[in-house]
């Protein structure tokens, strides 16, 4: 199969196949003390227009799972198992093949926005380049799309700020710039890795609404990684709970929040600090 035809067939969904199906995904890294498996046997699926929330302990492999889906694991990392987009296997494809999908069909909002933006280029350049790579067209047209996207993520004065550099924005603004970058191509799947950690609750609510609107309009599927259980309960249709690289529990959001089975999930929900009761000392979660 030639490269172009391989890439083209990926865009034709296999009948009945879900948007994203991950089966028995494992990720490991070589370390000085032998290979370390940071994700073990994770399986989940995301249908069009739905959101999968991934919650779990810090370091439990949430980011690595999403990077494995994108084929962007750090140097040395290897993924085994199966990742299928519309029924087409993505694992084991070359960078060239995946290039057609990345940005266009699957977009990702990375966890650490400052280091994820190139300090040498204005955000305008960084938003428009993705658009132009996949849609072509003039710089002016791409710029218009970018300004619109910035406006949607509530960056004030977008036609001026588009020419600013990443370091001239606040942490939460950079996070929203990453989101703008992801949504301006209206991909089939958006993977958001802790996209709202620097957003105050009012802007956060606006951004979550924006994503929900997008989902309604274009049927975008979402993987939403967060540690904020209240946010997950709001946005997710299904939830995957991870700990130490293992899948602890998986189910519909309602099921996870009303009838959690795994002790870890229960402990998480118990330990959740509530705005209404100021504990002096937090309960914490016993592993």
């Amino acid at each position: 199969m030639s490269i172009t035809s391989a890439a083209r067939t990926i865009s034709i969904p296999v009948v009945g196949a879900p948007l994203l199906e991950v089966e028995h995904l494992s990720v490991s890294f070589p370390t000085s003390s032998g290979p370390a498996t940071v994700v073990r046997d994770a399986s989940f699926r995301v249908d069009q227009g739905t959101t999968l929330g991934i919650v779990g302990e810090s370091g439990s492999g949430k980011s690595m799972t999403s990077l494995a889906v994108m084929g962007l694991l750090p140097r040395g990392g290897t993924a085994t198992g199966s990742v299928r987009l519309f029924g087409h296997e993505l694992l084991g494809r070359t960078d060239r093949e995946l290039r057609r999908i990345r940005g266009d069909r699957i977009a990702m909002v990375f966890q650490d926005p400052l280091s994820s933006l190139n300090p040498y280029y204005t955000i305008g350049v960084q938003i428009t380049e993705a658009y132009r790579a996949h849609r072509g067209g003039s710089q002016a047209a791409a710029r218009k799309v970018a300004i619109e996207a910035l406006e949607r993520v509530r960056i004030a004065d977008p036609d001026r700020r588009i020419d600013h550099y990443p370091h001239q924005f606040s942490g939460g603004m950079r996070q929203r710039i990453m989101i703008a970058m992801a949504i301006c191509l209206e991909p089939d799947l958006i993977i958001c890795d802790e996209p709202t950690t620097a957003l105050d609750v009012t802007v956060q609510a606006q951004i979550l609404d924006l994503l929900a609107d997008l989902q309604r309009q274009t049927g975008t599927g979402m993987v939403f990684i967060t540690h904020d259980l209240a946010v997950v309960s709001r946005v997710a249709d299904d939830v995957l709970v991870m700990k130490d690289g293992d899948e602890v529990e998986r189910g519909t959001t309602e099921q996870i929040f009303t009838a959690p089975r795994a002790p870890y999930t229960r402990a998480l929900l118990d330990a959740l600090p509530r705005i209404d009761d100021p504990f002096e000392t937090l309960k914490g979660v016993q592993a």
Binding site: V55, G56, E57, S58, Q111, G171, E194, T197, A198, H227, L229, A267, L268, A271, L272, P273, E280, T281, L282, K283, G284, V285, A287
Partner: peptide, 21 residues
Amino acid sequence: CDEAVSALDVSVQARVINLLN
């Protein structure tokens, strides 16, 4: 601390906040 615990799950967050306290 500028958003120092923003990416931590509740259990680790609790641990860090307890340490700070």
